[in-house]
């Protein structure tokens, strides 16, 4: 778990202002849902947290320390698509994080270490309902199965922060309910701080402990790039995941 602090953060691409004067304090273990119109900097904010973009001005702190300049195992990510490795089976995809951190040169585990990792992976596969599909390749899975695997793939590394960029955007509404249950369960079990972008307001209210709305405060019709978006609403929601799991 980790807290995130944003202080007077600006992000500009040349003359285009994407984020302006962002100020936030997110506590340990919150589930933050982010909504807003397209092109108003939600994904940019996530990419800043991920470390693939740098703020133009201002500070972005994790546990009051500056964010590392590149992606790392402390911050997991699930994209809408392409998060899985097509050349690896479901089990291999899931093992990958453990193998990367457990074997710096070969990136593969053997013997007892491999058995421990496999046990952990199998338990996780079972909990997300993918154990039967463990030897399939990602292209043989449905969209919902792929996203469940992708989330598990990040969670197995026990990140302090989990970033979700419209993870359920491409899924059928029926499957989404299952996905919500899984993500809430993994969140409460693994004590992560979660940031999730969503297009679905209902979903955002249901899942989050805090809802952020990104929007532009000012508009210049002659120069749409002149002003950037910021957090216009910062709503605390219900606190406990377990309450909502029961509901």
């Amino acid at each position: 778990m980790a807290s995130v602090t944003v202080k007077r953060l600006w992000k500009e691409y040349g003359r285009q202002v994407v984020l302006e004067n962002l100020n936030l304090r997110i506590e340990d273990g919150e589930f933050v849902t982010i909504v807003g119109a397209s092109g108003c900097g939600k994904t940019t904010f996530l990419r800043l947290l991920l470390g693939v973009e740098k703020p133009t001005r201002g500070e972005l702190l994790i546990d009051d320390k500056p964010i590392p300049p590149e992606p790392g195992p402390d911050r997991g990510i699930v994209f809408q698509r392409y998060s899985l490795f097509p050349h690896l089976t479901v089990t291999e995809n899931l093992l990958l994080g453990l193998e990367f951190t457990g074997s710096r040169f070969l990136g593969r585990l053997f013997g007892a270490k491999r058995r421990t990792a496999l046990e952990k992976a199998n338990a996780l596969l079972d909990s997300i309902g993918l154990y039967a599909a463990r030897d399939k390749y990602p292209s043989q899975l449905s969209g919902g199965m792929q996203q469940r695997l992708s989330i598990a793939q990040s969670v197995i590394c026990e990140p302090e922060i989990l970033l979700l960029d419209e993870p359920f955007g491409a899924l059928d509404p029926g499957i989404r309910a299952d996905m919500h249950e899984i993500i809430l369960r993994l969140w409460s079990q693994n004590r992560m701080t979660v940031f999730m972008i969503s297009h679905d307001l209902k979903e955002s209210f249901q899942l989050g402990t805090r809802l952020l709305v990104f929007d532009k405060r000012r508009q210049d019709p002659q120069d749409p790039d002149a002003y950037g978006a910021t957090v216009t609403y910062n709503l605390p929601l219900k606190a406990k995941a377990t309450d909502r799991l029961a509901a």
Binding site: L50, V52, E70, P71, G72, P73, R75, G76, I77, F79, R81, Y82, S83, L84, F85, L96, G97, F100, T101, R104, F105, G107, S150, Q153, S154, C157, P159
Partner: peptide, 18 residues
């Protein structure tokens, strides 16, 4: 190869070598 894949691998702890 999608950038998403390369970023994801980094968040799983991969070095340039891995």
């Amino acid at each position: 190869l999608p950038t998403e894949q390369l970023i994801k691998a980094q968040t799983l702890g991969a070095s340039s070598w891995l």
